[in-house]
Design a protein around this nucleic acid. Structure first.
Length: 496
RNA sequence: GACCUGGUAGCUCAGCUGGUAGAGCAUUACACUUUUAAUGUAAGGGUCCUGGGUUCGAAUCCCAGUCAGGUCACCA
């Protein structure tokens, strides 16, 4: 037989099931009154139960069999005995020897009614009285075996197949589901935290006529009846600020952003950022707020810093970007010009390009020499102003801006600032940035969102804003090294 | 975009300097009424990622492509 030998066999079984008069895909609701987890936690001998799930294992021992079924809460063992098993519509003599032994397969979804007991081996088990086929599986599952001491054999581990067929990954790899359950809990926790403060969750456009708020290549699409190109948002920042102008005191959005750039372990073309804007606050306030938010999440989800020590809620340290560079390179780059900075790159053996501007070089020095040193949560503050076109000039320090990034485990987790609300300065700064970007990458796709400028002209209160990379935060808290592991369906190149 | 590694049965993998394609689990058949990585006996199952080349002969060597992973570069 060809490559789908096992599939052909199962399709034949499907037909035989129909001949027996059983619908392999019945419509009727199946009533359950329990779950695998609850049965294990609250075992009562001889208690009648009804549950449904996927058959994951079947061990036939003559006239009795043991199996394992898995529902949304976990696995539970079942016991099937030839003498007292009933299947609706199936003749008594066919129930065990035909239906169970020949037609039932691992992967089938079944409902069972029976009572609880413990086996000689002290395993909580359901003695099945009645079995109902709820959905026939015609494709074999990978056979992952888990021993009593939780060792995994023949794990379904091919990353490509796991991501392309996440449904299979979720069925056979128990730990995968937990990552995503945790993801949901973390997001819920953040939402709760923000709701309690009275901030409003909002939705802003994903299809934007001008992709603003960040610098990145957007995905372009086209609206037929408007006859215009639209862009999938690269950020939602400019829209949330419009809402602050409109009178909201605090708004946030879990924003799916889309960036048409390279993909790797840390970048998926679509990813999630939490953006929060609060009126009448500044970046100092936002630092304190972020510290409370992140600490509460770390406490709840037992974040472990290096060496597996449980996270200890100490105050996050704060260091200015220039001080950090001084600390890790020995150079005080304050007030240096571009040619001085290039000399420093040469001494430090850091690559640079002549077309880079001053702040790009500073950023690069920081990324190469400083960032990796911050394992414990650390605020890097006061970035050079050219790097931050949407940020207020620092109230005291010349050439710097009121901006911070939160670095944890050597990775940027959040980016925040006192939002620039001077419309004239904002226009000038965006224009300058666009000019530089055009020189750097021949990128003619950037333009100024003039409606955003107009909104500032009406007056935006002083505002603090932050973006938190949700996927990266989930990676931290679940101990995953790649973003694909924390997204259900990471982007893959189509096969063939 | 550059380089490195990999793609063999449904799954996990082996396959040496080129000589008829292998194992475990899964599947099929038989046995077995408390097993749990069940067990025992037997059987079936392959576009060796795709396309070229070298060779009497290629899963194996060479070239190109493709998909994935990794390193680097680029990028908020």
């Amino acid at each position: 037989m060809s490559l789908s030998e096992q599939k052909i066999i199962r399709i034949n079984k499907l037909n035989e099931i129909k001949i027996l008069g059983i619908n392999p895909y019945p419509s009727k609701e199946y009533l359950i009154n329990n779950t695998a987890e609850n049965i294990r936690k609250n075992f009562i001998n001889k208690k009648k139960v009804s549950i449904a799930g996927r058959l994951m294992r079947l061990r036939i021992l003559g006239k009795a069999s043991f199996g394992e079924i898995k529902d949304h809460t976990g696995r539970i063992q079942i016991y099937l005995n030839k003498d007292n098993l009933y299947i609706d519509n199936v003749k008594k003599e066919d129930v065990y020897n035909v239906f169970l032994k020949k037609l039932l397969d691992i992967g089938d979804i079944i409902g069972i009614k029976g009572f609880l007991f413990t086996t000689k081996m002290n395993e909580i088990t359901i003695n099945v009285k009645e079995l109902t086929l709820l959905s026939k599986s015609i494709r074999p599952l990978p056979q992952v075996k888990i021993s009593k001491d939780k060792k995994i054999y023949d794990e379904f581990s091919d990353v490509e197949q796991r991501y392309r067929m996440r449904y299979v990954d979720l069925i056979v790899n128990d730990k995968v589901k937990n990552i995503f359950l945790k993801r949901t809990k973390i997001i819920k926790k953040i939402r709760n935290f923000l709701d309690k403060k009275g901030y409003i969750e909002v939705d802003t456009p994903i299809l934007q006529p001008i992709p603003g708020g960040a610098v990145a290549r957007p995905f372009i699409t086209y609206h037929n009846s408007l006859g215009i190109p639209l862009y999938l948002r690269i950020a939602n920042e400019l829209y949330l600020k419009r809402l602050i102008v409109g009178g909201f005191n605090g708004v946030y959005e879990f924003s799916k952003n889309f960036r048409n750039e390279g993909m790797d372990r840390y970048h998926n073309p679509e990813f999630t950022v939490l953006e929060l804007y609060v009126a009448y606050k500044d970046y100092y306030w936002m630092m304190n707020f972020t510290e409370k938010l992140i600490t509460s999440i770390f406490m709840e989800f037992n974040y472990k810093v290096k060496h597996n020590k449980i996270y200890d809620p100490i105050p996050f340290s704060r260091i200015s970007m220039l001080d950090s560079i001084k600390k890790y390179t020995g150079f005080d780059i304050n007030n240096m010009n571009k040619s001085d900075l290039i000399k420093i790159c040469i001494v430090l053996k850091i690559k640079y390009e002549n077309k880079w501007n001053k702040c790009k070089i500073i950023e690069h020095i920081f990324d190469e020499k400083c960032k990796k040193n911050y394992v414990d949560p650390t605020f890097i503050i006061d970035y050079p102003i050219e790097m931050s076109p949407l940020t207020k000039k620092h109230r005291e320090k010349k050439n710097l801006s009121e901006r911070f990034e939160l670095i944890i485990n050597g990775q940027e987790i959040a980016n925040a600032y006192s939002e620039l609300n001077d419309p004239i300065d904002q226009f000038y700064r965006l224009k300058k940035q666009i000019k530089y970007k055009k020189e750097l990458k021949n990128n003619n796709n950037t333009f100024i969102d003039e409606d955003f400028i107009r909104s500032l002209e009406f007056g935006m209160p002083p505002t603090a804003g932050i973006g938190i990379g949700i996927d990266r935060l989930i990676m931290l808290l679940t101990g995953n090294k790649s973003i694909q592991e924390v997204l259900f369906f990471p982007q893959m190149r189509p096969k063939k």
